[in-house]
Design a protein around this nucleic acid. Structure first.
Lengths: 193, 193
DNA sequence: GTCTATAGGGGGATAGAC
DNA sequence: GTCTATCCCCCTATAGAC
C-alpha cells in the first residue's frame, strides 16, 4: 500500500514530478499543462524540471512508462488471487482515477494523438497492449473456472469492457459519478450471467 | 446529402471555418490547434478568423453548436424510419468520424475538460444530453416493437453503447479500424438477443 | 541539484488601412 | 471582409552562477 501510494513527501523529486505530471495530463490533457504548473506544485523552479526531463516529451514518456510499471506490479501482486479479485483490482485503476476526477492516460493521449510525439505514442501502444493482455487473461481464467459468463471471444469482451470504463470516466465528468458506478455494476452483472 | 455534406467550395467562410475547426479539434484536441492552422487551410489571414469568431472559445462554442444542429437534423430526417435504420444512422455519426481518423467531439473535450471555458462546457452538456435522449428513444422504440432485446434500463443500455462507441474511436486509433467494426458488430449482435 | 535570467518561438488578440 | 503589422503573454528550453 505504501509502495503503491506513497505520500508526496516520500517521493524523490523525479518521481514527484512524474506524479504531478500524471495528474495534470489525466485531468487537463498533455497540451494543456506547462512546466510552470509542475514547478508550482512541486516547489522547484521551472528550469529545474529540465534537469530530470530534458523535454516535455521525455516527461510524457516517463509518465506512460510509470503506468506500465504500476500495471505490471498490480498484475504480479494479484497473480495468486481468484478472477473476481483480479477483476476488482483491474477496475480499481479506473475507480481511483474517477475518485480524483481524472480520465485514463490512454484516453487523454489518444484523443490528441496526432499532436503527440512518436516516442510517447510508441510507449502508449505498449501500455494499451499490456492493459488488454491482463484483462484478457483475467477473463479467460474466469471463464475456465466458470465464475464469469460471456458469449464473445475474450479479446472482444475485453474490448467492450475497456471502452466502457475509458469513456465512462470521460462521460461521468459531466453526467456524474453515479454513471461510472452504473457502468461498473452493469459489467459485473453481465459477467455473472 | 448535399446539405449534410457540402463540399468546402459550397460553404460560406464562417461555415468553412467551423468545419476546419471541427476537424482539428476532433483529430488533435482543442488545445493543440491554432488559428494559424485554420487560416492555412481556409486560405484567409489569421486575423480574419477573428471577424467571425472573436475568441477561440467562441469558435469552440460554434463547433459544438453545429454538432447539436446536425444531430437534430439527423434525428428529424430519420423520425419515420424503423428502429434498426435509426440505430444505423446513429452509428454512422461514429463511423464517419472513424473513416476520417477522428474521435468524437465529446470525448476530446471531456478529456481536457478543466482547461475548457465554461461556455463550451455548457454547450457540450447540451450535446451529450441530446445524444443520450436520441439513443434512449431509439432503444425504447426497438424494445417496444420487439426488434431489440436487452435486459437493463434503456438509459443504462444507452450508456454502455455510447461508451463503447466513444472509446472505440479512441482505441482504434492505435489498435486499428477492425476494432471499431468489432465493437459495432458486437453491439448489434447483442441487441438481436 | 537548484537557482535566476533570458533566449526564441508561437499563441490569441487588436488596430487600422483598404 | 480581408489584409498587414504588431502587441503582449506564455511556452519550452538553455546558459551559467551557486
Amino acid at each position: 500500500m505504501k509502495q503503491l501510494n506513497p505520500t508526496n513527501a516520500m517521493l524523490n523529486t523525479r518521481d514527484y514530478i512524474i506524479r504531478v505530471g500524471t495528474d495534470l495530463i489525466c485531468s487537463r490533457g498533455f497540451n494543456a499543462f506547462s512546466f510552470k504548473d509542475i514547478s508550482r506544485e512541486v516547489g522547484i523552479a521551472n528550469a529545474s524540471i529540465h534537469y530530470y526531463f530534458a523535454t516535455k516529451t521525455d516527461l510524457g514518456l516517463a509518465v506512460v512508462q510509470a503506468h506500465i510499471k504500476e500495471l505490471e506490479k498490480l498484475k504480479e501482486n494479484n497473480s495468486e488471487r481468484d478472477p473476481w479479485t483480479k477483476l476488482n483490482a483491474f477496475f480499481n485503476i479506473y475507480c481511483n482515477a474517477q475518485a480524483d476526477k481524472r480520465v485514463c492516460i490512454a484516453g487523454t493521449l489518444l484523443t490528441d494523438l496526432p499532436s503527440i510525439d512518436t516516442p510517447i505514442r510508441d510507449e502508449l501502444n505498449k501500455l494499451v497492449t499490456a492493459i488488454f493482455a491482463w484483462l484478457i487473461s483475467i477473463l479467460e481464467e474466469g471463464r475456465r473456472k466458470k465464475v464469469f459468463y460471456f458469449s464473445s471471444a475474450p479479446r472482444t469482451k475485453a474490448l467492450m469492457i475497456i471502452t466502457n470504463l475509458m469513456a465512462g470516466l470521460q462521460i461521468s465528468r459531466i453526467s456524474g459519478v453515479q454513471d461510472f458506478e452504473l457502468i461498473k455494476n452493469t459489467i459485473i452483472k453481465e459477467l455473472k450471467g
